[in-house]
Simulated assay, not measured.
Amino acid sequence: MPSDQTSKDLALGIVDFLKSAIADGTITSDDAESVEVAIECLSDVFQVDESRKEQVYGKQNLLSIFNAFQRLKERKKSSEPAETTEAAPSGPSEADKAKAEELKAQGNKAMGLKDYGSAIDFYTQAINLDPTNAIYLSNRAAAHSFSGAHEEAADDARAAIKIDSNYTKAYSRLGLALYSLGDAEGAVNAYSNGLKLEGATPSEAMKRGFETAKKKVAEDLDSVVPVTTDEEEISSRSAPSDSGAGAGAGAGGFDLNSLMNNPAIAQMAQKFMSNPGALSDMLNNPALKGMMDNVKNSGSMPDMNDLMNNPMLQNMAKNFMGNKK
């Protein structure tokens, strides 16, 4: 196999290295036979001429040359200037902070003019310059609330709290946003956290917001679980429990379904329809007026059984229907 002289000289160095490794015990006796076979193969393939060793390597060998190369490489590496990497900025620059404050002032001015769209824009620019400032986010939350964007207001308030959990105004802005979204319970929690941080001197806005949200929670609870008064409880206990009263039965046993299905009552109603004056005469009856006054004063309907068995009413009905006995 033809080969250039450089390859042959390199193969010479490898053969010399392997023979030295066998001689000094680097290669164990168990492996020596295999390595010797490899040496023979290399010598044949590259036509190694061992007589050229001193001419090619002098007093060196392949191992010493490699070690020298490694030392040179290390020295070169140590002499090279260390690579400098720019540290990531730890926060906004002083110039950015100053500009952000100017933008915040412009946003506050726009809020005073009720120009909430411009205020949001100014606060957004300030946040972009200094995203670590909770005040900018809280102020934008207020602008969102005034413009009716309550979801965005809640998001900004939460972001402000995440940056600075001790910034109380953010809790007030969050409470207002949640209340406006119909989450009165969440608003109570937000205002409550703000009040805890404000301590002995709570702000009027925080107190007012908390009380308003708490009242709304109570109203929502009352609408789900109606409060029963003592009078209603007594009335319900005194009502007949007989299931035969039907779905139309009310307080005092007043059964509207039974009343409407009573033939006598139906006939009486037809009589009233054909003779309106008779109804007026009946309602002006002193005894009946007294009974109706009692119903008005007591606030409850009379017992239907009592009405049907009342002799006075029975007599009035007979006279009205023309059924005298």
Rank of each mutant, 00 (worst) to 15 (best):
S7D: 13
D9R: 13
L10R: 14
D16E: 09
L18H: 12
I22C: 13
D24A: 12
G25A: 11
D30L: 11
E33K: 13
Q47S: 10
E50D: 04
E54W: 03
N61F: 07
L63H: 01
L63V: 09
F66D: 00
K76F: 00
G91L: 08
A98S: 09
K99Y: 05
K99S: 09
G117W: 00
F122D: 01
Y136L: 05
A143K: 15
G148R: 07
A149W: 02
E151M: 12
R158V: 12
Y167Q: 08
A177E: 03
Y179N: 14
L181H: 07
A190V: 02
Y191C: 04
E198N: 03
G199H: 00
T201N: 11
P202A: 06
S203K: 10
M206S: 11
R208I: 06
F210E: 02
E211Y: 11
E231K: 12
E233S: 14
E233L: 14
S238F: 02
S241W: 07
A251H: 04
N257A: 09
L259R: 06
I265P: 00
S274W: 00
P276H: 11
P276S: 11
N284A: 08
N285V: 02
A287P: 00
L288Q: 03
K289F: 00
D303M: 01
N305E: 08
D306Y: 02
D306Q: 14
L307R: 09
L307M: 15
M312T: 10
Q314S: 10
K318A: 05
M321P: 10
G322D: 09
